[in-house]
Design a protein around this nucleic acid. Structure first.
Lengths: 212, 212
DNA sequence: TCCCGATTGTGACTTTTTCCACTATTCTAC
DNA sequence: GTAGAATAGTGGAAAAAGTCACAATCGGGA
């Protein structure tokens, strides 16, 4: 559901880069300076050859015999994924989930800043979530347009997700992270990714032994 | 990170089944009785051949010329994924995210029931989240053991995720959904899946045009 | 200086996944 | 009853993804 076809690097490779970046950041936090494809692979459950091949798409980041300089590799991956800048993100939906997302501190140092939270419920509009004030969804398109917001997260009930997506797309959003458990239709130039815990759970229950 | 190797059906196929089930449920909610691989594929952005082949792993669920009886297919998929029963799930972490998860109504009719919420913070232990009371994580292993809990969600800070996972595994949990943005190590008989919004966002920013 | 162990980057190969296209079947309309 | 349109199921081809294994290179130590 993401992807531009034009580019030569497989999307599945792009999808692993954030995992590499995350693992590298943890290694650095532990004070490490250098790592190897083998070590990284162990941490991630991915073969070392895979990691080397993935990284080689973007140039030779490592040194034979030594491995990868962590700081250097982090820097390069950030640039490749364009998270060496801060993307401002809009959140639609200020319910339990939307609030939790908006309060989450973990976006900031990984390239994203929640900058707006929208809701349609008059009882929620104007209330504060941490720093920001919940905005009326009626003003959403204006705000998105004037701020050139490219990324939004949908945290509304499934019934409203498509409608919200339509508004976002019309206002110029190019990337949507949809927490609502429903597939949404968007034009080809817009990317959508989904977060649905039940999908993961059901995937796992297939393999579980039901002992009841 | 899921998977038993023994089985003959590819894990990637298993991973799509929840998506099929979700789309079928929506179709039924719209009052539809029958659908086709083509329609399903359109909704999901998957080729119709893919869907037919995936489903054919589990038997002939459709009828040539007609398509798939939605109720029947839902029933079969539920059985295949073992979500025709209700799995009781433990949530570890009663912060903003853990609370939002615990309050979410969407698990129930898809095969899962949040049954316990644990936290280590004395200020949170004993407080109510909807119906249930936040339990002391010190009692977690006992509760998991005596109730034979097989599934847990981790919603604690990254630093504590591995430690929590260790406790869960030791107590007999077989499937973990980890919301903490860190890879955790578990024995091979335990499945782990991850939810990290930043991973999805970074995946998408690779393709965005940074106009700043 | 030279050797040895470690590790990358990569071409070739293998495995997995997806797609194609065809047959068989079903339903509807006439 | 028959023709025609629609659609599942499927074997095999094609494409994609992953793995292997080796040459090249690096750093450290004798």
């Amino acid at each position: 559901m993401p992807l531009k076809p034009s580019n030569s690097i497989p999307d599945i490779v792009i999808g692993r880069l954030p995992l590499y970046l995350r693992a590298l950041t943890h290694l650095r936090q532990e004070g490490r300076d250098v790592t190897s494809s083998h070590e990284l692979g162990e941490k991630l459950g991915i073969s070392s050859a895979q990691i080397r091949k993935d990284l080689s798409h973007f140039g030779g980041f490592g040194k034979q015999g030594t491995g990868y300089q962590i700081d250097f590799l982090i820097d390069r991956l950030r640039k490749v994924m364009q998270v060496n800048q801060e993307w401002r993100v809009a959140v639609v939906g200020a319910g339990h989930l939307g609030s939790a997302i908006s309060r989450y501190r973990g976006f900031r140092d990984r390239g994203f800043r929640i900058a707006w939270v929208f809701d349609a419920d008059p009882a929620k509009i104007g209330t504060k979530i941490d720093d920001f004030i919940v905005q009326d969804v009626a003003n959403m398109q204006d705000i998105i347009r004037s701020n050139k917001v490219q990324i939004a997260m949908i945290a509304v009930p499934a019934e409203q997700a498509q409608q919200v997506a339509n508004l976002l797309v019309e206002a110029g959003v190019r990337a949507i992270l949809n927490y609502a458990p429903i597939n949404i239709n968007v034009p080809p130039h817009v990317m959508v990714q989904y977060i649905d815990p039940v999908v993961h759970l059901q995937h796992m229950t297939y393999y579980l032994l039901s002992d009841e």
